[in-house]
């Protein structure tokens, strides 16, 4: 058991060290998301009413699109430096590789969210600093990294992966996106845990299902 955790952590740590050195992924996600938010502040009329109505949708659309650009990098860097082969030769099972890579991606998305969400609160004049928001961010980041890691691994060998990844990723995560937008809507309107419970349950079910399924079928993707 501890071995498993150590292996997962070793893979995630490798990505983290790389990330700390060149800051590729987090900068890409954060920069893209902030840009989308900034564009929306003048693309739509942001009165107090409007902000509550459209703010949550804009926030999560921005994070979803930005997340895709970041996830593209997750396996691309492995291909560029030919380290994917090394990872595959290593005597570890494929599901652990998957979990390690998703853990890394989860940490990147979370870091980006830590920067993006306060900026969103400022630009849209909404109060989002509540424990509920932490829960929403967590379940969304887990789901995004679970699905995103799987699809990034799938599309890594395609030349047009910048096109392919969003086409695969966005429709599949729609339920999660709906859950995030709806529960954030409740949150900015002062809702309670009870009101967003069914959405959070849906998001958790989505996360669990996709982590399990992806870990199970991951070996079909990287097999050679």
């Amino acid at each position: 058991m501890t071995d498993t955790i150590l292996v997962i952590w070793a893979i995630a740590r490798k990505d983290l060290v790389l990330e700390i050195r060149n800051k590729d992924v987090v900068v890409a996600i954060t920069g893209f998301a902030l840009l989308v938010l900034a564009i929306f502040t003048f693309a739509v009329d942001l009165s107090q009413m409007n902000a509550k109505l459209i703010g949550p949708g804009v926030l999560w659309a921005a994070i979803a699109f930005a997340g895709v650009t970041g996830l593209n990098r997750a396996f691309a860097s492995e291909i560029e430096s030919s380290t994917l082969e090394a990872l595959l030769i290593a005597p570890i099972s494929r599901d652990l590789i998957y979990l390690g890579k998703s853990l890394g991606n989860f940490l990147f998305i979370t870091t980006a969210q830590i920067i993006v969400i306060p900026t969103f609160a400022v630009l849209f004049n909404l109060i989002v600093f509540r424990w509920e928001m932490v829960a929403i961010c967590m379940v969304t980041a887990i789901g995004f990294s679970a699905v995103g890691t799987l699809f990034a691994a799938m599309s890594v060998r395609i030349r047009a992966r910048e096109v392919m990844l969003p086409l695969l990723f966005l429709p599949v995560v729609t339920p999660l996106l709906m859950a995030a937008v709806e529960s954030t809507s409740y949150l900015v309107n002062g809702g309670t845990w009870g009101e967003m419970a069914s959405w959070l349950q849906l998001a958790i079910a989505f996360d669990v299902l996709f982590i399990v399924i992806s870990a199970l079928i991951f070996q079909n993707i990287l097999e050679d």
Binding site: L150, P171, T174, P175, M178, L202, I217, I221
Partner: peptide, 19 residues
């Protein structure tokens, strides 16, 4: 794998869209 995931996602999408 994509074919299977699409089918697995269908009920979740329907549930979410309903909600």
């Amino acid at each position: 794998v994509i074919g299977v995931i699409g089918a697995l996602d269908a009920p979740i999408i329907y549930f979410a869209a309903n909600l």
